[in-house]
């Protein structure tokens, strides 16, 4: 999915268009991106899929209430963040229930690399960098991780992140600064 189409500025006409559009079209357009955000947040392929379904189920139920005040992606991302929060909260409360954990570790997650890295050395270097970023992400708080993923994986603007998370721009910047600091420390430690 091209990021440029998602990050277009919201206008009233576009908001009306989105509000009037068929939900299935919106779901088909943004489902991969919501899935990617949930996958990067949980590192669990099955859980990300479950949460994505739950997110779009909630979105479908509340589709009539979507006024187009923000972009559909921001609105969906906000639902996804809440679904993820609810999941972890329920899991803490219901620790005695049988739960499956399929989350992969940093090593396994860093195995995925784009195929256009030219040489094996570059691939190795890139894999090492990705692993260190994952290790830094592991140590972030839930909110810092969410903000970090929205900024550096989904490439959302600060204002969009603020709308999706319900935080102020300043708070988003502060979380980002701490998260990037952690990544920088992790990368510096490998030297």
């Amino acid at each position: 999915m091209a990021a440029g189409t998602i990050l277009e500025p919201m206008t009233a006409a576009r908001a009306e268009t989105i509000a009037a559009a068929d939900f299935s079209h919106v779901a088909a357009s943004y489902r991969p991106q919501i899935y990617r955000f949930l996958l990067s947040s949980t590192r669990d392929v099955d859980l990300a899929e479950t949460l994505t379904q739950e997110c779009f189920l909630k979105a479908h139920r509340n589709w009539a209430g979507f006024r187009g005040e923000s972009s559909a992606l921001t609105w969906l991302m906000r639902i996804a963040i809440n679904v993820q929060k609810d999941h972890w909260r329920n899991r803490r409360m219901q620790f005695w229930r049988q739960t499956r954990v399929n989350a992969v570790d940093a090593d396994e997650a860093s195995e995925w690399l784009p195929s256009h890295e030219s040489s094996p050395e570059q691939q190795l270097l890139a894999r090492e960098q990705v692993k260190h970023v994952w290790k830094a992400v592991e140590r972030l708080s839930g909110r810092q991780r969410t903000v970090f993923m929205l900024r550096y994986v989904e490439e959302m603007e600060i204002a969009e992140i603020a709308r999706a998370t319900g935080l102020s721009d300043g708070t988003v910047k502060a979380h980002l600064s701490r998260a990037v600091g952690r990544v920088r420390t992790e990368l510096g430690g490998k030297k």
Partner: peptide, 23 residues
């Protein structure tokens, strides 16, 4: 910070590749 920028870019591409494959 060139190294940090490269690491973040690789991280983004890696997550995208993983997500595309899993999806």
């Amino acid at each position: 910070d060139a190294e940090l920028g490269a690491a973040l870019r690789h991280f983004r591409l890696s997550v995208h590749a993983w997500s595309d494959a899993a999806y």
